[in-house]
Amino acid sequence: MNTSPDTNPDAMAGENAGKSAGHYTSGNTGHIHPISQVTQELYRIFAKMGFEVAEGPEIETEFYNFDALGVAKDHSSRDMQDTFWLKETGPEGERLLPRTHTSSVQVRFAQKNKPPFKIIAPGKVFRNETTDATHEAEFYQIEGMMVAKKVTMVDLKETLKTFALEFFGPDSDIRFRPSYFPFVEPGIEVDVKFKGNWLEVLGAGLTHPEVLKASGLDPEEWQGFAFGMGLDRLVMLKYGIPDIRHLYSGDLRVINQF
């Protein structure tokens, strides 16, 4: 503290000056976006189980986003995801698109890396959907994939249960429900029990033999599981954020709370 008889306030501001408390801030330094925070927390959870981060491009070929995953061109499964397409085509004339899911990382990674492996792939995805409180045309997903000699539904459930207990807390639980994604068989939805309610949080299943084949792997030798979930949804559930658009607003009244 300054000891001069009288002082210029600006120069004399004590070490507490600038300290702020309030509704929209949780401290004085900067803030890391909640999507980044949750991504890192998921990494911590899955890394303990042996997963490492893999990446894929945001602009994908039709092959990696759809065909290699068994989402055939003229099949109604294409309707499950509203797709943006780029005007530009790839060097071989292939159709290009902002990826509709992080599942596009599966075959890309498996073609280049020798199993066994366990990966998670967080990243941005795009859907041609009108924006509202729970829908965005751009959002984040995290994909998970394990390939080894023997992979079972029990392994999948163990992995996802560990995730749920760590992320949603010791009172949470999970359940599997039958569902359909062309790149897994069986395909399931995973509900998480959070604060007493069952919430639809993940899609998952055992890697379809055709996906292993597209990855250059022999399905007689290798097996896998895959799962995917919306990061934004996890963020919204964890922090009680009611509107997905808050996450992309660049509004420090939102970000500086975290």
């Binding site: 900067g30 890391i32 902002p98 045309a137 970000i255």
Partner: peptide, 28 residues
């Protein structure tokens, strides 16, 4: 982490914008 410690806050803004080199075929 380092930018946070330097007082910066992180934003996530849109990839899809009004102008650029790569147009969408079927924009929203």
């Amino acid at each position: 982490s380092n930018l946070r410690d330097a007082g910066f806050s992180e934003s996530y803004t849109y990839t899809l914008v009004e102008k650029g080199l790569s147009p969408l075929q079927n924009p929203l």
